[in-house]
Amino acid sequence: MSASNTANASATTTVISAKPVILPAPGRGEDLQVRVSAPATGGDLPVLVFSHGFGWSMNGYAPLADYWAANGFVVVQPTHLDSRSIGMPHEDPRFPRIWRIRVEDLVRVLDGLDTVESSVPGLAGRVDRSRIAVAGHSWGAQTASTLLGARVVDADGVPGEDMTDPRVTAGVLLALTGLGDSLTPFAIEHLPFMRPSFDGMNAPALIVAGDHDQSQLSTRGPDWFTDPYTYSPGPKSLLTLYGAEHSLGGIPGYEVAETTDESPARVALLQRLSTAFLRSALSPEDTSWKAAAAALDEDADPLGKVQSK
C-alpha cells in the first residue's frame, strides 16, 4: 500500500493505493490481480474500472489513475492475461478467447466489489456502488466498450453476444479502434475479434481520438478512431486531440517507451475533460462537463475540440 500527493488540480488530495488485490478466478488459469486507488478521505465515491492496453498491467496509466482517484473516484485496474508481467505466449490455448476473458475480468471486478472495498484500509462504507463507470485505452477501450453495449461481429457479419452490464452507466473510451471493414491482412488473421458493432452502445460515453493516430491494423487514417462516436447511438461526445498519436500524449505513463507524442499539456487536458465528463454522466445534475467543453471551445489556442450528440 502506498500514499502519494497527485501533482495536478487536486495536488492537496492524498491518494491511497493497494495492490495486489486478489480476486478468485476459477477457469482463468490464475487469479485476477487488481490495483485499487482512492482518495484518503471523502464519501459517496463512484467506481471507475480501467482496462489497460495490450501488454500493460495494473501498474500503468498513473497519469490517469492518480488523477481520477485524487478527484474522488475509486479506480480499479485489473491486470489482463496479455500483460507483459504475465508473459502468456500467443500459442497459449486461452489466447483465442483472450478478448472475452478481458471482458470477464471487468465483470469479475464488479462482482468482487466487497473485496475491492475492503482491500484499502478506511475505504469501507465510502463507496457509491450506484455510480459505476468503465474506461480503457486501445484494446482496453474495446474491452470496456463491450460492457457499454458494443458487440463483436462474427465471421458471418452477425453481432455476437450482448455483454452489456447494467451496473455500468458511463464510459471513457481512449483510442478505441473502429469498424472491422478496413483491417489489414495481419489484423484479419490474428485479431478476428476486432470487428465491432456499435449499434447497441447506448450508454453515455466520451470517445477520445488523436488526429495523428495512424494504426498499423487498419488501412484507414486517424478517422478510424472516430467510428465509435459516428456509429453508436447517443448520447456520446467525441474529444479529438490535436497532434495526438496512439498514446494521446503519454497516458500510459511519463517517459515510457511507447509514448511517441509526449505532451504533458495534452495529458492534462484529457485528465480534466475525462473527469468532468464522468462526473456529469454519473450525476446528471452536475454541470462539470458542459463547463469544461465550453471552456475548450472558447480557448484561443485549443489542444483539441469536442463534439456531442
Rank of each mutant, 00 (worst) to 15 (best):
V36Y: 07
R35W: 03
A40I: 10
L269S: 01
R102V: 08
T41D: 11
S119V: 10
R266I: 06
M58H: 09
A281S: 04
H190W: 15
F198S: 07
A209R: 05
D211M: 04
V120H: 04
E285T: 12
E285W: 08
R279E: 09
R35N: 13
G180A: 04
A203T: 12
G122L: 12
L123G: 10
T13D: 04
P166G: 05
M163C: 12
R129G: 03
D44T: 11
N71G: 05
S247M: 13
G250K: 05
W224Q: 01
E104P: 00
L110N: 01
R272H: 14
R97M: 10
L191Y: 13
E298L: 14
I188T: 15
V120N: 05
F95M: 15
M88T: 14
A9W: 00
Q307V: 12
G27Y: 10
L238N: 05
T275H: 13
R108S: 11
G221H: 06
S237V: 06
A65T: 15
A265F: 02
V208M: 01
S83V: 10
G157T: 06
D31I: 03
D44Q: 14
L269F: 06
S4F: 15
P204N: 09
R97H: 10
D165N: 09
A133D: 05
S308L: 02
V109W: 02
M88Q: 12
T287E: 12
R126T: 10
M163R: 15
S83R: 05
P78Q: 07
V267R: 07
D156C: 06
G122M: 07
A294Y: 02
L183N: 12
L148T: 02
R279D: 11
L110E: 03
M194G: 00
M201K: 00
D114C: 06
R266H: 01
S17F: 01
T259G: 04
S51N: 04
S197F: 00
A133C: 01
W139R: 06
A135E: 06
E285V: 14
L206R: 05
S51F: 07
T79D: 02
A141D: 02
S237Y: 02
E117F: 03
P204R: 05
D211P: 03
G160T: 12
T260I: 11
S10I: 09
S218F: 00
S232M: 11
Q142R: 11
A209L: 11
A7V: 14
S145Q: 08
L106Q: 14
G27E: 08
R151H: 02
D299A: 15
G53Q: 04
P63Q: 02
S197G: 00
V75P: 01
T12F: 15
Y242D: 07
P46C: 05
V103E: 13
L303F: 05
V152T: 15
T13C: 08
A300R: 11
S215C: 04
L123R: 09
E258A: 11
F277Q: 08
G250E: 06
H212R: 11
G304M: 09
G178S: 01
I16H: 07
L270Q: 06
G200Q: 13
L110W: 10
D162C: 10
F277S: 04
R266Q: 14
A3L: 12
H137L: 09
Y254F: 14
R279G: 13
S215A: 04
V306S: 09
N5K: 07
E117G: 05
W56L: 15
S119R: 02
G136I: 07
S2V: 15
N71P: 00
F54W: 13
T169C: 03
